[in-house]
Computed example of a mutant assay.
Amino acid sequence: MADLELLLNKQSFIELGARERIKAVLDQGTFRELLGPFERIMSPWLNKQNIVPQADDGVVVAKGTLQERPVVAIAIEGVFQGGSLGEVGGAKIASALELAVEDNRNGIPTAAVLFLETGGVRLQEANLGLAAIAEIQAAIVELRQYQPVIGVIAGSVGCFGGMSIAAALCSYLIMTQEGRLGLNGPQVIEQEAGAQEYDSKDRPFIWSITGGEQRTVSGLADAFADDDRGQVKQQIADFLVQGIPQLHRSLNYEFYLPKLLQLDTEQQSAPQDVLLTYQGEQV
């Protein structure tokens, strides 16, 4: 009966849009959006290719508090152009993170929370998007010296391309069952290497390799959360309290490089092979 009551009280996090995800996490009444849709700062390139732009370029940035701690929260809208990043959206993210760095230098301990639903660079703005993602990555590395940078990959777009590298640079990563994380998306791998190498239509296989549960048990994500607003918010708050990790995953190359060198690329890895790669005899 208690389990049923808990299930009925759950509120889906994945079903929320970018703006609502931020509001669900921040302390009530503290949400203050920066460069919102009414500012009308949008991509100047999409109209040229007969694509309707979005007034916030698919990126929502807000300041607020979480359990009275100052944070900047950034969410990518996965339903707009597959969450792809171009010039404007990328600049909003990079600038927000850089301002958080400035806050810390001025004695305001501002952390960052990134809600990542993105396929990476927007093809229509390729070079501009790549430059923006490089700036985002540099800003994450700088900010994480002061305060935790927490990434959340909830679903259902996943996090791929250059932004998967940004995710790997975060102090902590939270994933759900629906979330996926990988450098290249399944369709891209299938397009380049063929369905026999990676069948993008085989959903159970895709999630067994890049899904939230697999990434967490492999140690590539730090927490596995249910699709529940309260649980996601609490996990973010816990990591804020935990503070900066002793060793960021991206600096632990002495552990990861030997593991990758042992990987047999001649055959398709099974889910258990992925676990063995990272966890060895612990599996």
Rank of each mutant, 00 (worst) to 15 (best):
Q67P: 00
Q67L: 08
E68F: 12
R69Y: 05
R69V: 04
P70Y: 13
V71L: 09
V72E: 05
A73L: 05
A73P: 04
I74A: 07
I76S: 11
E77Q: 06
E77S: 13
G78Y: 06
V79H: 12
V79D: 07
V79P: 00
G82N: 14
G82S: 09
G82H: 10
G83W: 13
S84R: 14
L85W: 06
L85K: 04
G86V: 01
E87N: 01
V88W: 05
G89H: 04
G90I: 01
A91S: 07
A91R: 08
A91K: 12
K92E: 04
I93F: 02
I93D: 04
A94T: 02
A94W: 07
S95G: 07
A96H: 04
A96F: 03
L97P: 05
L97D: 07
L97F: 06
E98Y: 02
E98C: 00
E98N: 05
L99Q: 06
A100S: 11
A100D: 02
E102F: 08
D103A: 08
D103H: 14
N104V: 03
N104H: 01
N104P: 02
R105N: 07
R105E: 13
R105Y: 10
R105C: 00
R105W: 06
G107V: 04
I108T: 08
I108A: 05
P109M: 08
T110H: 03
A111Y: 12
A111C: 06
A112R: 08
V113A: 07
V113K: 09
F115L: 14
E117T: 03
T118D: 08
G119M: 12
G120M: 12
V121E: 12
V121C: 15
L123C: 02
L123W: 14
Q124K: 11
Q124A: 15
N127L: 14
L130R: 14
L130S: 13
A134E: 15
E135P: 00
E135R: 15
Q137E: 15
Q137D: 14
Q137L: 03
Q137T: 14
A138F: 10
A139G: 06
A139T: 09
I140V: 14
V141F: 08
E142L: 09
L143P: 06
R144P: 01
R144V: 00
Q145T: 07
Y146S: 07
Y146E: 05
Y146C: 01
Q147T: 10
Q147Y: 07
P148D: 08
P148H: 10
V149E: 09
I150W: 10
G151K: 00
G151Q: 01
G151D: 03
V152E: 08
V152F: 10
V152L: 09
I153P: 04
A154S: 13
A154T: 03
G155M: 03
G158R: 03
G158P: 00
G158W: 06
G158H: 03
G158S: 07
C159I: 01
F160H: 05
G162K: 02
G162R: 05
G162Q: 00
M163W: 09
S164G: 04
S164Y: 01
S164M: 01
S164E: 11
I165E: 09
I165L: 13
